[in-house]
C-alpha cells in the first residue's frame, strides 16, 4: 500500500487555520514591516508611496513620549507580573485547600476575565472616582481618601497602580486556573511522605508545591509578561493616558503605555507609518524579553 504523507483531505482540514493565520497574522505582519520603512498613510497620497528607510525608527526614538511610554511599560510589566502571579498563586492555593464552595470561588475569581477590558476599565474608573471617595464609614474615618489629590486616578503613580489593580483583577483568575491545574496534578504521595517527615504546610509549599508547579510558572510568567506588555484596553478606558506628567522637559501623558502610544501615534497624530515602526520595535523587544524569560524559567523546572 502506498503511504501518502499529506493528502488533500489533510490540507483541506488544515486550510481554515492556515488561511486565517496567513490573512490576519503573517501577511499583515510582513506588510507592517514593509510599511514601517515607507511614508505610508491610509489617506490619499498623490505622490505615491515613498521609501524612507529607517527614518520612522529614528523619529520614534527621538520622540520623548515614546521613550517615556517604553520605560513606563517596562516598570508596569514588572509590577504587574509580580502582582498578578502572587494574587493568582494565592487564590489557587486557596481554592485547592479543600475549603467549602471551592468551585464557586473558582468560578467567581475567573469571572472578571470574561468581562471585556474596556468595560472593566470604565467600571474601575467609576469605583476609583465615585465609589471610594463616597464610602460611608471609611470616608468618615479617613476623610483624606475623598480629597481630590488623593484619588487613585489623580496622580501619575497611583494611576499606574490603578491600572495594575484593574489589570490584575481581570487576569489573576485566568492565571489562577493554570496554577490550580498544576497544583492538583502534584502526586499525593509526596505530601504523604512529607507528612511522615513532619513537614509544616509552609515547608510543603516551598519544597513540594513550588518546585512541582515550576512548569506552570513558566507559562504564567510568559502569559502575564505578554499580557502586561500589550496592555491596551484597560489603559484606554481607565486612564486614557492621563494624568499628565513632565518628562525630560516635555509635558506628556503620564500613564500612556506602549500600545496606547502606538495607537495615538497612528490615530491622533496621524503618523501611520511611524506608528507601524513603533509596533515593529514593540514586537522585537517583546520577543527578546519573552525568550529570555522562558529560557530562565525552563531551567527551574523539575522532572519527576
Amino acid at each position: 500500500m502506498k503511504k501518502k504523507q499529506h493528502d488533500l483531505v489533510f490540507w483541506l482540514f488544515l486550510a481554515p487555520a492556515v488561511i486565517a493565520f496567513l490573512m490576519v497574522i503573517l501577511i499583515p505582519f510582513i506588510m507592517g514591516i514593509f510599511y514601517s520603512m515607507t511614508d505610508w498613510t491610509s489617506r490619499p497620497q498623490p505622490e505615491g508611496l515613498q521609501f524612507v528607510g529607517l527614518l520612522n525608527f529614528i523619529d520614534s526614538f527621538k520622540d520623548i513620549s515614546f521613550i517615556y511610554s517604553f520605560l513606563l511599560t517596562i516598570v508596569y510589566t514588572f509590577v504587574n507580573m509580580i502582582v498578578i502571579n502572587i494574587v493568582a498563586f494565592g487564590l489557587a492555593l486557596l481554592v485547592t485547600s479543600k475549603i467549602k464552595f471551592d468551585n464557586i470561588f473558582r468560578a467567581g475569581f475567573f469571572l472578571p476575565n470574561l468581562i471585556g477590558g474596556l468595560i472593566l476599565g470604565y467600571i474601575w474608573q467609576f469605583i476609583f472616582n465615585m465609589v471610594i471617595p463616597n464610602l460611608p464609614v471609611i470616608s468618615a474615618i479617613f476623610p483624606a481618601i475623598a480629597e481630590s489629590g488623593n484619588l487613585m486616578l489623580a496622580t501619575r503613580d497611583s494611576a499606574v497602580m490603578a491600572i495594575v489593580i484593574a489589570g490584575s483583577w481581570q487576569y489573576a483568575g485566568y492565571i489562577m486556573m493554570i496554577y490550580v491545574a498544576a497544583i492538583i496534578s502534584v502526586p499525593e504521595e509526596l505530601f504523604e511522605a512529607a507528612k511522615i517527615d513532619g513537614a509544616s504546610s509552609f515547608k510543603n509549599l516551598i519544597h513540594i508545591i513550588v518546585p512541582m508547579t515550576a512548569q506552570a510558572f513558566t507559562i504564567t510568567m510568559f502569559l502575564t509578561l505578554v499580557q502586561s506588555f500589550k496592555q491596551f484596553d484597560v489603559n484606554v478606558s481607565l486612564t486614557g493616558g492621563g494624568p499628565s506628567t513632565q518628562f525630560a522637559g516635555s509635558f506628556i501623558r503620564g500613564t500612556e503605555l506602549l500600545a496606547l502610544d502606538i495607537y495615538n501615534t497612528a490615530f491622533t497624530a496621524n503618523s501611520l507609518a511611524e506608528s507601524q515602526a513603533r509596533s515593529v520595535i514593540f514586537f522585537i523587544v517583546l520577543v527578546l524579553i519573552s525568550l529570555l524569560q522562558v529560557r530562565r524559567n525552563k531551567k527551574k523546572e523539575v522532572e519527576l
Binding site: 494624568p243 499628565s244 509635558f251 501623558r253 497624530a269 496621524n270
Partner: peptide, 28 residues
C-alpha cells in the same frame, strides 16, 4: 488635533493638578 490633544492637553492637565504654577503654565 495632535497639537491640541497631545501638546496642549497635558499642559492644562498639569496646571489643573497643581504640578505647575501659573508662571510655568505660561512658559509651557
Amino acid at each position: 488635533e495632535d497639537f491640541r490633544n497631545n501638546t496642549l492637553g497635558p499642559i492644562y492637565n498639569q496646571f489643573a493638578g497643581k504640578q505647575i504654577n501659573k508662571a510655568q503654565f505660561i512658559d509651557a
